[in-house]
């Protein structure tokens, strides 16, 4: 893929970038993921998902790492959600 540009990366570097992406996404969204896990249909899967996410969610809440998501959700609530919209 576009070897000539010389700036593209091998799969190992891409994997590292993807790992950073996934780790940060989980950290910044863990509280919301914990809430979603509570709504899962299957008991075993729900318990497993909650057990996996809970420690990260606590860490995220402690350092308020979900501020971006909450900020964006506030923007949505203020500008984009319409309780009276005829849905």
């Amino acid at each position: 893929m576009k070897d000539s540009e010389g700036r593209n990366v091998t799969w190992k570097a891409a994997a590292a970038g993807l790992a950073v992406f996934y780790a940060l996404v989980v950290l910044m969204n863990a509280p919301a993921m914990e809430k979603n896990a509570e709504n899962m249909d299957y008991g075993v899967a729900r318990d497993a998902a909650k057990a996996l996410v809970r420690p990260v969610a606590r860490l995220s809440a402690m350092f308020r790492l979900d501020f971006l998501r909450r900020g964006a959700a506030r923007v949505r609530g203020r500008w984009l959600d319409h309780e009276d919209s005829p849905q």
């Binding site: 970038g17 992406f21 969204n29 971006l68 998501r69 909450r70 900020g71 964006a72 949505r76």
Partner: peptide, 18 residues
């Protein structure tokens, strides 16, 4: 690449919030 991944995570989180 780690900067790309980090910034992508930030943008993705904002998208999830919106």
């Amino acid at each position: 690449v780690w900067v790309q991944g980090g910034l992508a995570a930030v943008v993705f989180t904002i998208i999830l919030g919106l």
